[in-house]
Design a protein around this nucleic acid. Structure first.
Lengths: 189, 189
DNA sequence: GCGATTTGCCTAAATGCATTAGGCAGATTC
DNA sequence: GAATCTGCCTAATGCATTTAGGCAAATCGC
């Protein structure tokens, strides 16, 4: 019989695509095996478990998102950087909802520490360098930005804004503007 | 044999407790049946499906959270109200992590429209009355507040803040302060 | 009170996913 | 070309979901 050429890498990539198509929580070893035209047990040579697959997709999505954010940030500073970063985040979620959900998977601390999540925090700090905010306020700001971006995108994805006629695009701009204003003035209350 | 006295109400309530103990995604019809010392099939007289149970828990959590938020808001205005609302949100998530996750379940539009999620938005608007913000900015602000609160709590719950020595409590206060400042000044950019 | 009906929980059985053990053939190595 | 290794297979188990149909307890009509 012809071999399918499975590798952990390919499985995780296909799992990410599957997540975008059917939702991250519908990603299953069985579905993935079907997609490769292969028996379920065959995947266990490459994946330890179903959880392992999900974690793999999450790490993959975190990397990919961090790469995009880094691209968006290149050559920008100040409000420009803030807006580009925010848009990268939101754009990724809209383009790859399943992967975005995957990126929000709760990881155990060691895995998280070794993930691209660290880069996300570093990039946020880099943006804040344009705003002259010292510690511990800088950490507070990192957390706020992470919170707003994630929270807004998450609410938008779950349809929480669809009952109001206001364009989410405008809300997004307004929020980014607001954060910029806030960060510029926060040092002197 | 003695009857267990199952009702949809009791099952959902028990499901909510189970979610807090083992995590929302570990809530299963089987586990719930075990908890009641009853056979699995028996639950299907009261629940249409596993999804139905999850949705029920989500709606229950949304109600409970809205009730708490309403209590917190009673008799307060301005920054007081903002802080109380924020704390109610975060407190609920800390006290009932499983239910909080449940409250974030993606509901189909009709279900969502009939849920307590609507009250959440109304309460946020009520807070903003203390800040004199007109439409469409008010909607933008509602979305921002929803986003920050949810996003921050979500990141904190998933351990995203544990690699930095800064106290999440202080970050939370700083963020609420910041939002207050922002909302007070946002009308004049 | 007592028969009839409804209701609540049961047994049984089918389906699907996750996981492990062990086998066979195609690819690789010498 | 023989030996080994690797990749995918069959087979079997366990657990969760879901449906169909049964029996006994609770409830209702009288």
């Amino acid at each position: 019989m012809v071999r399918a050429g499975l590798t952990t890498e390919r499985l995780i990539r296909a799992g990410a695509e599957l997540a975008d198509e059917v939702g991250f929580d519908q990603v299953t070893i069985s579905a993935l095996a079907r997609r490769f035209g292969v028996k379920v047990a065959s995947l266990y040579s490459h994946l330890k478990s179903s959880q392992d697959l999900k974690t793999g997709i999450a790490l993959f999505a975190l990397e990919e998102l961090a790469d995009r954010a880094a691209d968006a940030l290149a050559g920008r500073a100040g409000k420009d950087a803030l807006a580009a970063f925010a848009d990268a985040y939101r754009g990724y979620a809209r383009e790859h909802p399943g992967r975005y959900d995957a990126a929000r998977l709760r990881l155990d601390p060691e895995t998280a520490a070794a993930s691209a999540g660290v880069r996300h925090a570093q990039m946020t700090r880099a943006i804040l360098r344009g705003y002259d905010i010292a510690e511990p306020d800088q950490t507070h700001a990192v957390r706020m930005l992470g919170g707003v971006f994630h929270g807004y995108v998450s609410l938008e994805m779950s349809g929480g804004f669809s009952h109001t006629p206001v364009d989410p695009e405008e809300s997004w701009s307004w929020i980014v503007d607001s954060l910029d204003i806030l960060l510029r003035n926060r040092t002197m209350p």
